[in-house]
């Protein structure tokens, strides 16, 4: 089934991938300047009769080209060319959405983000608008190994002038993507592998989740578990475990990594006095380290215990299952870290 064939009407549980497709469809229908570019996003203009387009590596965009034939553009495998052209298109009147198949491929095309899109507004004296969205798949867990499993959002979040968002569920994915596409700044929209095919309730119609706002997804009083993307689900599972032991855990979903909702982090720390931050990325120069530094810097008086970081290991992502599991954060490791603070 493609996203195109979903019934309209009641709120329904749909996979994140379908929620993303809904957002794209709404954005394109409501603004003729929105275009979609990437490798196989249309799925081949020369398909033999009787075959279906693939709609990108995760089939997220399947069916869109039929509705918007001039605005869904298959590109060559030329990430530098695609990203660079998207920046040029964005500053001249289009609102491009780019599919960068995996965030690992930033290595082939960093310049348009690092030195062009992120800098134009500031560098040109506040006069440029760069309404560009880069959708990209992040994270481990599918045995995709070292070059297709990284969580490099710390790189883009560390570049001034770029926004980086990462949803943890289908409803936020739809709302954050609509906000990203309509934002006049360049936004990196992360699609964690761990949530792409997980279904959850998604409202009908057109709505936006504001960029830069974290959300408390579970109330608690003993310890705060701060997650992002797929680690929010891990934190919720850990919170359920801790509950059985009589420990009340609050879970904060960052949703936006840049800008970072510092107030929400300090507020949850204020309620619990203890904080574990869970990040699917490697620990050095990470969002987890940023959050820990924030707690010490601006929240020292709120702390009743050290801040703990639960992250991936500081090594390339391994292929074989046993090592990949050891590499990634998990509910068990979160529970262990939280217990150590009590």
């Amino acid at each position: 089934m493609s996203a195109a064939s979903l019934p309209a009407g009641e709120p329904r549980a749909i996979p994140t991938a379908f929620a993303i497709a809904e957002a794209l469809r709404i954005a394109m229908a409501s603004d003729p300047d929105v275009i979609l570019m990437g490798e196989d996003v249309a799925g081949g203009g020369l398909r033999p009769e009787g075959t279906e387009e693939i709609g990108g590596i995760m089939s997220v965009t399947r069916g869109l080209v039929g509705q918007f034939p001039d605005r869904v553009l298959d590109t060559p495998i030329s990430e530098m060319g695609i990203l660079g052209a998207a920046v040029g298109a964005a500053v001249t009147g289009l609102r491009p959405v780019i599919e960068l198949m995996f965030i690992d491929f930033l290595g082939t095309c960093l310049d348009p983000l690092l030195n062009q899109a992120s800098k134009f507004r500031y560098m040109f004296g506040g006069k440029a608008r760069v309404p560009l969205t880069v959708r990209t798949v992040t994270g481990a867990g599918l045995q995709a190994a070292a070059q297709h499993s990284q969580s490099l959002y710390w790189m883009t979040a560390g570049i001034p002038g770029l926004k980086t968002v990462i949803p943890s569920n289908a409803a936020d994915a739809k709302g954050l993507l609509l906000a990203a596409i309509r934002c006049d700044d360049p936004v990196v929209f992360c699609e964690p592998k761990g949530i792409l095919f997980v279904a959850s309730d998604v409202p009908e119609g057109d709505y936006e989740v504001p960029i830069g706002r974290a959300k408390v997804v579970r109330r608690g009083s003993d310890v705060s578990l701060v997650g992002m993307g797929a680690t929010v689900g891990m934190a919720l599972a850990a919170a359920a475990d801790l509950e059985r032991d009589g420990v009340s855990a609050e879970v904060l979903d960052l949703r936006s990594l840049a800008p970072l909702d510092e107030d929400a982090i300090l507020e949850t720390l204020g309620r619990t006095g203890r904080l574990v931050v869970v990040d699917e990325a490697t620990p050095r120069c990470s969002i987890a380290s940023d959050v820990a530094a924030l707690c010490v810097d601006r929240g020292f008086d709120l702390l009743n215990a050290p801040v703990r970081r639960v992250t991936a290991a500081m090594c390339p992502v391994p292929f074989t299952r046993v090592l990949e599991e050891a590499y990634m954060p998990s509910p068990a490791r979160i529970v262990e870290a939280a217990r150590a603070l009590l």
Binding site: G84, A85, G88, Q116, F124
Partner: peptide
Amino acid sequence: HIADLGKGMLGANGIVGAGIPLATGAALT
């Protein structure tokens, strides 16, 4: 980094070759 988008000038550029895809995108627009 002198640019004047109102004049159709997409910017000088400190990165060798970086203006080439930008112009390509402007042509796409």
